[in-house]
Design a protein around this nucleic acid. Structure first.
Lengths: 351, 351
DNA sequence: CTGAAAGCGCTTACAG
DNA sequence: CTGAAAGCGCTTACAG
């Protein structure tokens, strides 16, 4: 591996001249020519700064502000969930963005005993320059992170009452988007199928609120009775209830929104098994990650680009880590509409 | 943060005495008493070795063999796959195991342009002490890894012709397990439902081979005709074909094995929609990760504990990184049988 | 504008 | 058996 010393020797300059060439913001100035010369040579020789040396020196000069080569991802899983496709999608994209910045991503699952002590250890030994945090984050956790004095960005929804740096999906916009698209097609009776809401996820409430507000504005017929909790998560027995729930209405809704990942396919099959045509009898709108299976099946859907959340999170963390203190920022990522074949205008006699 | 120097000052010993206390294998020996005293004090003060300093010094003394605090996970995604639940399950468990060893895990996705250069950079700048590798690994990739001279362990199936350190599931045992369980219940006509096999995954071939071999031994009726490629992956249209494929046999098979993740539920619903009772008319065996949805639905199934692969991979990497050179080891993890309600003895008149 | 020097925390060869 | 010293690669205060 190539060191600054070697570059200096090769060019017949001092080692500090080489170091200064990489830090143009420092008070000591090199002539432009000399600096360029050093940088070109460094590039040609394939110089890579030694991360460990940088980290070490950081403990000496606290205000080494421009260091950003190791970032941690704190994964706070909910107890009852083991695999989380959202997490991996965000992580891949965040890692990709960090790679551009010559930084790498350390994964820490704090949902196990002793998880937080690892976070503290990495912080104290300068193991990382900042944190991305994903999971059910609240004020207590934010307090803990603040005490460590490293910059951090929350990915996804959170329950904090104080302002924090975070990147999240605009859930309300997802709900609005659905209402707008079905309204434009001419639908008025739109059913909203939820998963089990006992856990009280934030996205569930926000999506529904967005849908409701837009539906009201657009003049859809959308009282409480159109909002059904479909027991799609509780095993197979409950599933046929979706059809009977839809059939209780007379006339039936002409459109339905399945507001949970990976469930529209099941509803589609249940409808077909009951000889309800999609989109002939009822239009169906799905809610999906860009990568899930339904994508291939040409459902009309609102897509939640979680990988974009990861990307924006990486960029925001880099920004707050390298720039002087500023107010907490909340970045929202817009959902995307994907037109498929499961929506169409309502039947003339039905609308 | 506490340093060795501070501990030394506190105890009135030299700094090197403290360092030696942490490295009992070195030639210079401390008295047992003194060593204990130093270690106790270090513990009491909450001493944490500074990783960066350790890494830095490693570039000086190459044979610092006992360092193991930063490990990389190389994620080689297949182009056509974006989210991989297996990867996250393994990673969580590996990270957990590394935490016990005071090490942390850096995630590197090499499926993007420039991915490998990051691996090289981390290797050259002593950014990591070893690699876990997950994805379609072949000899070319192994050659690349060997050149970097860091220990590495492959997680999951691979296509290498040379011996390598790896941890994988015993896929053949999964196939055998299914054959044994249905045979014990008295079944003779057993259908084997595959997903699309165009991609030629290794686990698909090995699982089938294991099933075939055991079926032959156990006297099951299992010619080529019992092995069907169920187009479960190609969208909704192909799905009803599963039922017609099963019905082409006369008499029908009394048991069926659905040999891909997350598909048994779909087959179950298709059968029910066609008034074929499970397990009355046909027993159904699923193939799942311990975390997938079917787990809740009480299917009889063979479970593939990928998290255990991650755990064993972490342990193996630690072993080869800290111990003198030894021959490549291949660790296999056994699948687990979970008895559910979708299997039973065949109907008397049918068997 | 430029270079020599100090020192981050640690490990280990070397001298007492 | 023990301690003083060198030095990993780097950044920056300080002296020319």
């Amino acid at each position: 591996m190539i060191t600054q010393k070697q570059i200096a020797r090769q060019l017949g300059v001092s080692q500090s001249a080489v170091a200064f060439a990489f830090h143009p913001t420092l008070h000591a100035h090199l002539s432009q020519d000399k600096r360029q010369h050093i940088l070109t040579t460094a590039q040609r020789l394939g110089y890579q700064p030694h991360h460990a040396a940088r980290r070490l020196i950081r403990t000496r000069f606290r205000r080494s502000t421009d260091q950003f080569d190791q970032v941690g991802l704190i994964f706070l899983a909910r107890e009852d969930e083991r695999v989380d496709p959202v997490c991996l999608a965000m992580m891949c994209e965040a890692e990709h963005e960090f790679s551009r910045l010559q930084a790498s991503l350390t994964f820490v699952n704090v949902s196990v005993p002793g998880g937080w002590s690892k976070v503290d250890r990495l912080t104290q030994t300068s193991g990382v320059d900042g944190w991305l945090v994903y999971g059910p984050v609240d004020d207590a956790i934010v307090g803990r992170l603040r005490r460590n004095r490293l910059p951090f960005v929350i990915l996804g929804d959170h329950r904090c009452t104080q302002p924090v740096n975070c990147v999240r999906l605009d859930n309300a916009a997802a709900g609005r988007m659905v209402a707008q698209h079905v309204a434009k097609l001419g639908h008025r009776r739109v059913a909203y199928l939820r998963g089990a809401i006992s856990r009280g996820y934030i996205y569930q409430r926000e999506t529904l609120d967005g849908f409701r507000a837009a539906a009201r504005e657009l003049g859809l017929d959308t009282g409480e009775r159109w909002i059904g909790e479909a027991p799609l998560w509780v095993g197979d027995e409950g599933r046929p209830q979706v059809v009977s729930w839809l059939r209780q209405f007379d006339p039936m809704p002409t459109a339905a929104f399945v507001s949970e990942f990976d469930m529209a396919g099941t509803v589609f099959r249940l409808l077909r098994a009951s000889d309800i045509a999609v989109p002939g009898d009822i239009s169906l709108v799905a809610y999906e990650l860009p990568s899930l299976a339904t994508t291939n099946q040409n459902f009309s859907r609102v897509e939640l680009p979680m990988s974009e959340v990861g990307r924006q999170g990486a960029l925001l963390l880099h920004q707050i880590a390298t720039q002087p203190k500023q107010a907490a920022q909340e970045v929202t990522v817009a959902p995307r509409w994907a037109e498929g074949e499961t929506t169409g205008p309502p039947r003339a006699h039905a609308s």
